[in-house]
Design a protein around this nucleic acid. Sequence first.
DNA 1: CTTCAGCATTTGTTCGGACATAGTTTAAGC
DNA 2: GCTTAAACTATGTCCGAACAAATGCTGAAG
Lengths: 251, 251
Amino acid sequence: MGRNPAFSGPRYQDIAASLLRDIARGRYPVGRLLPTEVELCERFAASRHTVRDALRIVTEKGLLVRRRGTGSVVIATAPPNVFTHSVGSEEEWMRYPTGTFRETVNTAEIAADRKLAALLKCEPGKRWFRICSVRRSSRIPEPLGWTEIYVLPAYAGVVKRSDHGTTPVHRQVEKMFGESIDRAQLEIFASHIPAKLARPLRVAAGTPALTVVRRYTGLKSGMFEVTVTIHPENRYTYSMELRPQLHAKQL
Amino acid sequence: MGRNPAFSGPRYQDIAASLLRDIARGRYPVGRLLPTEVELCERFAASRHTVRDALRIVTEKGLLVRRRGTGSVVIATAPPNVFTHSVGSEEEWMRYPTGTFRETVNTAEIAADRKLAALLKCEPGKRWFRICSVRRSSRIPEPLGWTEIYVLPAYAGVVKRSDHGTTPVHRQVEKMFGESIDRAQLEIFASHIPAKLARPLRVAAGTPALTVVRRYTGLKSGMFEVTVTIHPENRYTYSMELRPQLHAKQL
DNA sequence: CTTCAGCATTTGTTCGGACATAGTTTAAGC
DNA sequence: GCTTAAACTATGTCCGAACAAATGCTGAAG
């Protein structure tokens, strides 16, 4: 029991691995209490500080809940998340290579008809401020896609800002109105180029396209922005990388 | 300098907040070294342990890199990760609602021609074991899409397993051959239905489609599986939700 | 001038101790 | 018997100290 002779790293990592193994093997089932810190100190012949470091690792993996006076409760037998995807910046999430920009075509306040309401997942008749624009790259003459941005009418002021066109709209809303994003949702599906967009996108109507819908939900005003982008074939690829959760070996 | 009288929480959180503020305000620009632990102990009149707890918080937020002998280097002025996406299971990542299954049409060992090599991001001539199949749902008669799975010829044994068709192939490879996934990459772009697939997918050739490419890279044998799926319009939507990283207030 | 050994610096690991705080249990008092 | 206060338990916070390990610098040897 206790020390693993094959393991040469820090003691607290050894102890954490041992606890992880015990939990995975069912020695401490979900709902059961782990031994107290002092008991673990005795079992592993380590100081309380070292044991706490080990418990911190197990807790960060999401297998424990620890409370004063109560103890450490096992809440899972294995780390729950298999893959994670972290996005560093809005640009990265938008997946638009740097050097692209939006070119506003027109703006208007509109009411959602039934079709638009379905796309935006809002009730029909809801009023939105719509910004229609073309996304371009400095490298190629054809536009990358057609973007329709719908924001709550109260937030229409964003178009007046000077950095409009280069900064993501939801960031502008965050700064100007103190909204904070609670969650963002992404949907991607196949579509075809509508007749209206054939000319601005320089592509034949009815040809294959990729539609990307992004919905931003804030804490203050709920869903405050929806972006719909239509990309003609061969002009845009959504790409993403997932990694198994490393679970914090020290870097 | 030092203690913030308005803050009543633990000392290490107070110190962490102070450091965070200093970094955000540019007192320690990116690339600069933070004061050493001992210096911070003096400035905040705290023990090294407490200061280290504070530095751990700042490090976990991704603003610092710490190395023995060197010190703590500032690598960002604000937490870099804005959104995270965690995927709990393969099914969730695949985004196929439960109740769908794969129906194998044919299998063969092939060599990648130039076009396929570009899609798979491998060298032309590389040999792959290809599994062609149709993904169906029990609810609707039309297939959801056409899937071509390419695995290394050494792993061709996966098709013989009984749970083939319901279990993701990369999971089977993990179990059967002890491969462990290092990273997974996803690409989504617009395409059109090839003439060959018009009949099996029950849709007209040339109509819009969504192509999803998934690449799995393992620790042992590098990229060991690539899956290419073609979905006709209106039969499949890729959906994902991102949330702002909570940054570990204590739970 | 280059190379390498040795030293100083800085963070990493581990020990031992003390008190604070939050939950739980027990016991006293009505 | 119920309510409330005290005691107990377990984790949280904080201190002081020592040594280990990685890095960078300096000076001596070739």
